[in-house]
Design a protein around this nucleic acid. Structure first.
Lengths: 130, 130, 130, 130
DNA sequence: GTGGTCTAGACCACG
DNA sequence: GTGGTCTAGACCACC
């Protein structure tokens, strides 16, 4: 996969940058379900950040369902869930609504927004099923 | 419009709750462009929150392009922009991608995701143009 | 209440020592429900430990139901719950069983164990209800 | 005795799962004092875990006074002690107090707590004396 | 060799 | 003024 790129001066926290890039790689299928991720200390050494910073990114992705972490076997890419409760989905849908509203207000016409969404969905759809 | 509902004990900050509800009302057209919003002190009094909290929500919506604030005339709903630079759009699109990936991983199948997006877009499309 | 006593060299972590002493004060009624606890920075200053260490103790007691924490109002002693699911109780009961078995094996005869338990229950029963 | 059940993915460490189940079997009398336990390598083979993991569980139970381990004769269930110093008992009693306080706060009324304790004591009392 | 804990200090969010 | 975040370093638990 493409190497992680970190900007320590960015407003986005380092652990968030790591989590986001891994999330997109998983969602796009670049990192297929079942694949093992490098150890936190390895990533931390490569990026020049603390071990805990990487561990936090991994744990967040675990909470979001993107990774399965076991203490001894390390972290592996998880298969997507096959159904979820409304309680879990509601805040995610709220974030989606906010993102769409901001894009529209920032000047993206609705037809362009539709094309943008189709492109994003195509990237998701190309993902391999576990 | 529907009255604002605030939960002071929620994890989401109070100013965020105010901003989110106003943003959705604007995006859906419930609050049409040009319409004047109640004064900060009025809203603060009605909700029983600090004046600065409401002011912060207004300021955020101004930064996002949803409101136009002038010292004398107060806050009015802004018309959506008619074009925007990639620099402004990129972080918003990144948030959109994150929201979609989380929903997919949480168990929403891609076809359901499509329907969800159409519903959200329809709500946006019903909005009156400034 | 009695001042907290910390031994930085003890095997028990500092945050655990703080949590345990506060827990016992709450369980015994020394700290009554509704009572406000000192701010984390105050306690941290008094004990000479980091703010996060105290905050962690407070958060653990919140998770156990002993405290109610709100960002702006600080921490207050909570009233005991009025019923709980078996899922939550099972691990607690397992800890109780382990504690009893260890005491018995360490040489406390069952009759003495009974007296010990009655004494502990009396301390709990003397607690004021919220 | 009932076979040991291990969940490698559980939060509780494997050696702790083994120790806990053996401890309960000894405390309840299912494993009587003097009885020989299977060899470490036997248990490890049956459970499919590392030999050191089982050895650690045995060693912990030895430290707690539940087992007597000799190099030649292996591990045997120990008789309960007939008296112990306050220094050894105090931390055990502290754990007992913590367990009771948590149960009470989690919603178990004091009368129910009493019944729970009587049941646990009865299980202990049924144990055969060495 | 894996992930995790514990404490810390600087800084931030919130009202 | 409140609690919380973010990153860090040393050390630990586990197998």
């Amino acid at each position: 996969m493409q190497a992680l790129v970190i900007d320590p001066a960015a407003h986005e926290p380092v652990y968030g940058q790591i989590a986001r890039q891994l999330r997109e790689a998983i969602a796009s299928g670049t990192l297929a379900p079942g694949r093992a991720l490098p150890a936190v200390r390895t990533v931390a050494g490569d990026l020049g950040v603390n071990l805990n910073t990487v561990a936090r990114a991994y744990r967040q992705l675990q909470d979001e369902g993107f990774l399965e972490i076991t203490e001894r076997a390390g972290a592996r890419v998880a298969a997507p869930s096959e159904g979820s409760s409304r309680e879990r989905l509601d805040p995610l849908r709220r974030d989606l609504r906010t993102a769409l509203a901001r894009l529209r207000q920032a000047g993206v016409p609705v037809p362009d927004l539709k094309k943008m969404l189709e492109a994003e969905l195509a990237a998701l759809g190309g993902r391999r099923r576990g």
